[in-house]
């Protein structure tokens, strides 16, 4: 069946971040950074030709940490989806991240696939990025030149293009805990209930004190070339009462924010309509939750 990898390129598996950054600085795009390898191996098995030279990040202690403070959680880029979903601080305070991690492929995939890989692979259909966008996560990137922190919302430039430089590695993702007044909603619409790639996914963080929208972040997967935040929608809703938001307003805003396409899994029309429906459902949920609080 598939060819065994006897024609492999080099396989670097450094034991420290400094060593890894050194290799990355020398080789730049001539090495493919990898951690869980769940995507890399699919490409290879599908006949990608000669093995690339791999920079295996799975053994780096710096990338395998989960640190919690009062403000949020900092998750190492090589932490697996399973470990992430089972971490008490994540489970307690970041329910959308638990949900997205548990829908990143099957259990066997979640055990290997990493949060960093899910970001750096830069697929518009990736499961965790919308949640990270909605929570307002920041990324820490490092190179031999030093490290820097950027807002994840600024990270994806275009299809499979990001702000990461060729000598940089993603070290960690910091996810702030949301305000206790915020409500969150996550829904992935896939091709089936489990082990699916999303047709549409929506992650929402909505802060609506006294029934008026103070801050709302709507992040989508599979609705454009990158995982994206619907900025026009946020602007359109800010200051409006939660009850009685007109679907036409949402439809208009999303027409600006989203650029879905027909592909092998779904249609642009379906995606556009479901996006509106999911937003309206999230608003209705938030409105109901608000009503219960009062």
């Amino acid at each position: 069946m598939s060819v065994q990898a006897s024609a492999a390129g080099e396989w670097h598996r450094p034991g420290s971040l400094a060593e890894a950054l050194d290799i990355r600085a020398r080789a730049k795009d001539a090495v493919v950074p990898a951690a869980g390898c769940t995507d890399l191996m699919v490409g290879w098995n599908a006949g990608a030709g000669r093995w690339p030279t791999v920079l295996d990040l799975s053994a780096l202690p710096e990338l395998n940490r989960i640190d919690v403070d009062d403000a949020g959680v900092t998750i190492g880029a090589a932490v697996s989806c399973s470990r992430l979903a089972n971490h008490p601080a994540v489970a307690g305070r970041l329910p959308m991240l638990v949900a997205s991690a548990r829908q990143t492929g099957s259990v066997a995939i979640q055990n290997r696939a990493t949060l960093g890989g899910n970001i750096m692979n830069a697929s518009p259909a990736a499961d965790n990025p919308p949640v990270l966008l909605a929570y307002g996560a920041r990324l820490t990137l490092a190179s031999t030149r030093g490290s820097r922190s950027i807002d994840y919302a600024d990270f994806h430039l275009d299809y499979k293009r990001t702000r990461a430089e060729p000598d940089e590695l993603l070290v960690s993702v910091t996810v702030p805990f949301p305000s206790p007044y915020a409500s969150v909603h996550y829904r992935k619409v896939g091709t089936r209930r489990a082990q699916a790639i999303s047709k549409v996914a929506l992650s929402v963080l909505l802060d609506a004190g006294a029934g008026v929208v103070r801050e709302a972040r709507f992040a989508f997967a599979s609705m454009g070339p990158v995982p994206l935040l619907a900025g026009s929608l946020s602007a359109a809703l800010r200051g409006r009462p939660l009850a009685g938001i007109d679907p036409a307003l949402v439809t208009r805003a999303l027409a600006t924010d989203l650029s879905p396409r027909d592909d092998i899994r779904s249609t642009a029309d379906y995606r556009r309509q479901v996006a509106v429906n999911l937003v309206m459902a999230a608003i209705a949920d938030a409105s109901a939750a608000e009503a219960r609080r009062n």
Binding site: S2, A5, W11, R13, C37, T38, L40, M41, V42, N45, V54, D56, S58, A59, S82, V107, A108, I109, N111, R112
Partner: peptide, 15 residues
């Protein structure tokens, strides 16, 4: 002890 699909695991990660 954790489930993995062996078609996606490079043995270089198994030390």
């Amino acid at each position: 002890g954790e489930l993995a699909n062996s078609c996606l695991v490079p043995v270089g990660q198994l030390h």
